[in-house]
Design a protein around this nucleic acid. Structure first.
Lengths: 121, 121
DNA sequence: TCCATGTTTCGAATAATATCGAAATATTGC
DNA sequence: GCAATATTTCGATATTATTCGAAACATGGA
């Protein structure tokens, strides 16, 4: 994933309402939730909700599938993975990181839990 | 971490220039880089760079430490961890996720690599 | 066909953010 | 103290995002 699309996805999540929508869908799991139910739970006006759903879908973080009158939205977990991988990629120059935070029992020397640099094969 | 501060951090990363700065600091590791070097590598005007550095620092994603005339900025890896943990928290209702993407050799049934739900203890 | 329901599009007001030149601040070496 | 360097603050402008009422667009059932 390039910086531009990663930034677009992060920007999409960088809004309280959209983050709430995304989190709701992540917690809901692959089954998804229809638009009306999302709006009801988050107390959003239909037009506002639609605007944010379209934004999240445009950047690939969620998908909408029409089922009769309803549209089921669900999180795109692969996209979330890509985004997280992008953030931590080549951390600390790809070498085993210097320890800056205590991680668990001290057997782990990575700078951060999410950091993948210098991983044992 | 609450939704508001997570959204603020994601919004901070949701800008091409700031994401480039943050990624540069993540790759640089705990040692950090001074402001001038960042601006030189990314081709940013001093005022613009300062604006973005201040933004990232305000939301806690980076830290700046003054060393003589220079200010060494470094990524806050703990903050990055928190943010990633927030995104994946209680995924799929906290139950073992349904598999929606193939993960490695198929022994993993999580919906996504980053998902922590239903983890074995 | 007609109505109710679920969702999106349009439009327009409001608000927030990004950019960067120029000036200001801080530090160091001479 | 003065000049050079590193960085920030100020100020003004341009651009983009957010909100939501009202209208439009499907779909399904009577």
């Amino acid at each position: 994933m390039e910086t531009l699309s990663a930034a677009e996805r992060l920007a999409a999540l960088g809004h309280e309402s959209r983050l709430a929508i995304f989190r709701l869908l992540v917690e809901a799991g692959p089954g998804g939730v229809n638009a009306g139910a999302i709006g009801e739970q988050l107390g959003m006006a239909p037009a506002t909700l639609s605007f944010h759903l379209a934004h999240l879908a445009r950047v690939g973080l969620i998908k909408g599938q029409k089922e009769s009158r309803f549209i089921h939205y669900s999180a795109d977990f692969a996209a979330m993975d890509e985004l997280i991988a992008y953030l931590t990629r080549n951390c600390c120059q790809g070498e085993a990181c210097l320890p800056t935070v205590a991680v668990g029992d001290g057997t782990d020397e990575r700078c951060t839990a999410a950091c993948t640099s210098g991983e044992r094969e």
